[in-house]
Design a protein around this nucleic acid. Structure first.
Lengths: 247, 247
DNA sequence: GTCTATAACGAGATAGAC
DNA sequence: GTCTATCTCGTTATAGAC
């Protein structure tokens, strides 16, 4: 009896995966706004009404794709983080971990540009993300929070100065997301996260065409600068600014 | 005869504007991917073939909307910049100008979220931006370059350190876009620009929901930190980081 | 119970004849 | 420029196969 249920469930899982795979293909071709249940069904040799056994509506299929994409970036980030903690002979410095995770996110985006656009590009008209997406969406954020918490515990942070008007908001954000961190670093961390996505979006969406050529080197430098903004300390020697001549 | 031609041209300009207005409405409702010449025509009480006398294709209409949007943000930025140069009794400090321009861009985006998504969101499937968009697209960038050049000339800059591997790219970028600036600040400037858009995109696209509440204060702080990354000097007293306790 | 197929709805886009 | 016949879409109701 359990085998029968197992077989059914296995079939169900396979069909569900096939539907999502085909839907992802169509995402790449036509964009999320034009995702069509009928077209997916047609391509799979099914009839459209059969899809409703697997996804109760087009929006639910979209939601599943979005959740998968968030989970995929999140996992790429977590994997890179784990790997960076295991480098012999000693764990990598916190800044190196930060850069490693950022590069992993960028590489996932380069490998999956359409799924990236689905989660970090323009919202799909008429679609509002349900509560189910917020957990997967925040996985990646917690990786960066973890790195900074680690740094705070061991080396300490260069806590960035905080405008007085932002103090209560910083306290609230810290209480919500990272109670172990000094409140001032939490807005800086959220800003750095959005700025990291800004860097990647410009590259993926073509805004760096004819502007930036050495994309990876450029990215690494920018991401290291972001880390400095959140207070990660840099043990390299050559990181002091030089003053350019004024008038 | 010139009056007749003038009247004709005036009519043509009016119809062109009406078409673009209606197209913008549809952008807001259905997204750029579904922009349809027929629907625009229907709404205007015209027949679809008549539209082709104004725009030779759907893509050309899209291009016109994109160029308009880039010009609108560009103009918002330029206006804010001019205003910030005229504050009595003395012109605002360079950091204040940087923040003023960034806020102007953000406010334009909040007022025109769909046009913002058109230029800084996911690319429209099947559409590739023609050369005609690159000029308008770079207007906003040159505003920020101008501010930093000004600062370089008068107060000097805290030139950020540059990784050796990025040196040749920085030289090339500086030669192309800002030959008067120290090469090291040019990649930092381009990065800051993409990061500014990252901040705004997260707000416009809803990624800050349930995360950031005091949006404007948060934005001002983040943008001031970005300015620091490109080397703008801060004359305020309280901008030195404090060291948090490590292990 | 679990699934697929047929048929239909109302709305919208599209192509072509006129 | 107009009208019409034919497509697509999301979605539901229903009937039958395993």
């Amino acid at each position: 009896m359990s085998t029968i249920r197992g077989a059914r469930e296995r079939a169900r899982i396979e069909v569900t995966a096939a539907i999502k795979d085909e839907a992802r293909k169509q995402l790449a071709a036509d964009g999320a706004a034009k995702l069509s249940l009928r077209a997916v069904a047609r391509e799979l040799g099914m009839v459209s009404s059969a899809l409703y056994r697997y996804f109760p509506s087009r929006d639910e299929l979209l939601t599943a794709l979005i959740v998968d994409a968030y989970d995929a970036v999140g996992e790429a980030a977590e994997t890179a983080h784990r790997a960076s903690c295991d480098v012999p002979p000693v764990p990598a410095a916190h800044l190196a971990r930060w850069i490693a995770v950022a590069c992993a996110v960028r590489e996932w985006a380069l490998a999956h540009p359409h799924e990236y656009a689905l989660i970090y590009g323009s919202p799909v008209p008429g679609y509002t993300a349900p509560q189910a997406t917020v957990g997967p969406a925040s996985r990646i954020g917690f990786v960066f929070i973890g790195i900074v918490e680690d740094a705070h515990r061991t080396d300490g942070l260069a806590v960035p100065p905080l405008a007085a008007e932002l103090r209560p908001e910083a306290e609230r954000m810290a209480a919500d997301f990272a109670p172990d961190l000094p409140p001032a670093v939490v807005p800086a961390l959220v800003a750095a996260w959005s700025q990291l996505i800004g860097l990647i979006s410009f590259e993926i969406f073509g805004q760096f065409n004819r502007v930036v050529e050495a994309r990876e080197a450029f990215f690494r430098q920018a991401v290291a600068d972001l880390a400095r903004n959140v207070g990660l300390l840099d043990d390299r020697a050559d990181r002091t600014a030089t003053r350019s001549a004024g008038a």
